[in-house]
Computed example of a mutant assay.
Amino acid sequence: MTPATAHPASVSFRALGTTASLLVTDPAAMSAARRVLDAELAAVDAACSRFRPDSELSRANAAAGAAVHVSALFAEALDVALYAAETTDGVVDPTVGTAVRALGYDVTFAALRPQDLSPLRVAGPSAGWRAVEWDRAARRLRIPRGVALDLGATAKALAADRAADRAAEVTGHGVLVNLGGDLSAAGDPPPGGWRIAVADDHAATDTAGGPTVSITGGGLATSGTTVRTWRRGDRRVHHIVDPVTGDVPAPVWRTVSVAAVSCVAANIASTEAVVLGDRALGRLRRAGLPARLVRVDGTVERVCGWPADQTVEHTEGGAR
């Protein structure tokens, strides 16, 4: 294994309706790492996409009321989604699919056109994760009639973790995967760690002068309410839904960034924080998770040792 270089190789491209970025400490390992990432993205899209009628998720939702057998990857993604719901007391819940569609997010964000949207309709409270019948041993799923699953809150983070771990294993080098603000690092990092820009928009090209942090492993996720937005009537709505109301949560945080042992754990905490509003500060402190929360007025809150804002020249990051 060769030492990490000071300037990792990187590539960015469109995937899963967002921007995917791959960084590798050894440029010679990029091709192998990219093959791993491409395969993981294709697999998770086929399993968990809400926007493909042939995906496992779409077929499971269409069969609501009947039992269906699912693949090992879909089972893993569902396990993660149900774990998120259990650990957040239903704040991050996969049964919000109907509510998300009612708000207008029923096509990929790139295809969403305001002129196509009907007046705002709120679906009301979600059924809740306990309504899902899941036999893990048999990989048999039954979704109640009238309920639709949405695994988007956690499936992308799971893909980042899986791809980073596998690419590091295959190449023997440090890897960072960024899927629209969901980041996972595996293997030996470059000197000083992976330097991450924390921004409102994961697709921002000019992050100079913005806050940055360094990570050496694990995950970092930023959830935001300013990028994936659209108008319904006289309201602006976004992609994060409160399962209790079926509506977007009260506007408290513009972005929430959380560092954790994995991208999945960071994603769950950042999404939960957006829904909880001010209650998120206590929740993050009790969990011991370093986080940076930006209020809608731009005021910044930091908890559990998240460092004061610093800047560097080379960065990689953003919000989803």
Rank of each mutant, 00 (worst) to 15 (best):
T2G: 02
A4V: 14
A6F: 05
A9V: 14
V11G: 05
L23G: 02
T25R: 08
T25A: 12
A32V: 00
L37S: 05
R50A: 15
L57I: 14
N61R: 10
N61D: 07
A62N: 09
A67F: 01
H69C: 10
V70T: 12
S71D: 12
A75N: 07
A77E: 12
D89C: 05
G90S: 08
V91T: 09
A99D: 02
V100P: 05
R101G: 15
G104M: 11
Y105H: 07
T108H: 00
F109K: 00
A111Y: 00
R113H: 09
G124R: 15
P125R: 06
G128C: 03
W129A: 13
W129K: 08
E133N: 15
A137N: 05
R139A: 13
I143T: 04
P144D: 09
A148S: 13
A155L: 09
L158G: 13
A167H: 06
T171D: 02
V175S: 10
G180S: 03
G180K: 01
S184P: 13
G193I: 01
V198N: 01
D200T: 06
D201C: 11
T205Q: 11
S214F: 00
I215L: 01
G224H: 06
R228V: 03
R228W: 01
R231K: 07
R236S: 08
H238L: 11
G246C: 07
D247R: 14
V248G: 04
V256C: 15
A260V: 02
V261G: 12
A266W: 09
A273D: 03
L284M: 06
R285D: 14
L289W: 15
P290V: 01
R295S: 00
T299H: 14
T299I: 06
R302I: 09
C304A: 06
Q310A: 14
T311V: 12
G318Y: 00
A319I: 02
